[in-house]
């Protein structure tokens, strides 16, 4: 438990440091678009990210089980909170949309205290679309039993393509 707290604190520390940096323009293929109530944008009122930009943000690893995989896997990527701070987001809700237009609404107030991950890697390898990539929202289900419910499963959207803050 202490480890978790220390980890969260470290993450928060890194995030704070990254706030100051302005968003550069994406050089590669855009894999994530953040829109809505955000203060830090780079293209057409949106914040667009390619894989490299996401990798430049502080990375976190979470080991967990999910209902769509067998056994435990290590997921790696940027924390949702980190990303939202990066784009200077202000809002309580988040609409996450997938490549196949599946979408779901996340309550940011509820998730504030949990390390929700925008995973881009599984067991060290980048996730392809067929592996639920390029981005999969991972909840630490194994560490926080209260998150391990059907209600939260719905929000663990894979093949994430955009986020809208409001």
């Amino acid at each position: 438990m202490y480890m978790k707290i220390v980890m969260i604190c470290l993450i928060m520390g890194f995030s704070t440091m990254s706030i100051a940096t302005d968003l550069s323009k994406p050089q590669g293929t855009v894999i994530l678009t953040v829109s809505g109530n955000i203060g830090n944008i780079n293209t057409n009122g949106e914040a667009q990210f390619d894989r490299q930009m996401l990798e430049q943000l502080s990375q976190t690893k979470i080991t967990t089980y999910t209902p769509w995989t067998e056994g435990l896997h290590v997921y790696e990527g940027v924390l949702l909170n980190t990303l939202l701070e990066q784009v200077n987001a202000s809002g309580h809700k988040l609409v996450a949309t997938a490549l196949n237009d599946y979408h779901t609404e996340l309550d940011l107030e509820l998730l504030r205290d949990y390390p929700i991950l925008l995973a881009t890697k599984i067991d060290g390898a980048f996730m392809r679309v067929r592996d639920k990539g390029p981005i999969w929202i991972i909840y630490p289900l194994s560490d926080y039993s209260e998150l391990n419910t059907a209600r939260h499963y719905e929000n663990m959207i894979w093949q994430l393509s955009s986020l809208e803050v409001y």
Binding site: T66, P67, W68, T69, E70, L99, N100, R128, V129, R130, D131, K132, Y153, W158, Q159
Partner: peptide, 20 residues
């Protein structure tokens, strides 16, 4: 290619995990 990947992913989702 994207549509192919999405279809592949759907087959994977149904093949693995507790939910399916």
């Amino acid at each position: 290619q994207l549509r192919f990947e999405l279809l592949w992913s759907r087959v994977e989702v149904l093949s693995v995990g507790e939910e399916t």
